[in-house]
Design a protein around this nucleic acid. Sequence first.
DNA 1: GCCAACGTTGGC
DNA 2: GCCAACGTTGGC
Length: 145
Amino acid sequence: MPAILKKRQTWLLKTEPSTYSFKNLLKDKQTNWNGVRNYQARNNLKKMTIGDLALIYHSGDEKAVVGISKVISEPYPDPDAQGGDWVQVDLIVFKAFEKPVTLSEIKATQSLKELALIKQSRLSVMPVVEAHAEILLKMGKTDEN
DNA sequence: GCCAACGTTGGC
DNA sequence: GCCAACGTTGGC
C-alpha cells in the first residue's frame, strides 16, 4: 500500500473546470470547497476529516481525474447557504496527476467498475475505497511511497 | 442537442 | 403520501 494512503480516507470531488479547476487550485494553493447542495454529497462532506485525500475530477469536456488535494479542516457551515444545514471544507493542493485518468479509462478498468463515479454519475462528493484509490493513483502515475 | 438519471416542487 | 411536471447534472 502506498504510504500516502495510510490511515486516510480518500474522496473524489467533482468540479466543472470552467467553474473551478485543479489549475485554479494549483494557483490558489488552498480553497474552500463550498456550494454543495445535495444531501448525499453533503453527508459525505460531513464525514471528511483533516488529513484525508480528495481526488479532483473534472466533468464536462475533460472527464478525468486530474490531481490530488488534501483536506485541512473539519467540515464547517457554508456561509453562502441561506438556511439549511450545508457545509464546506478547506483543501490544499497536494499533487497534480502526471497523467490524468480519464473517465473512459476508468470505465475500461474492470477493477474500478464499482467506483461511485461510474455507478452514480451525478454525485459530486463520494468516498473512494482504498483499493480503488490505489489503482487511481497508480494510473495517474503519482508515485507517493 | 439530446437524453438518462436523478432531485425537487406542488397539486391532489 | 403519491405522482406528474419540471429542473439540473453530466455523459454521449
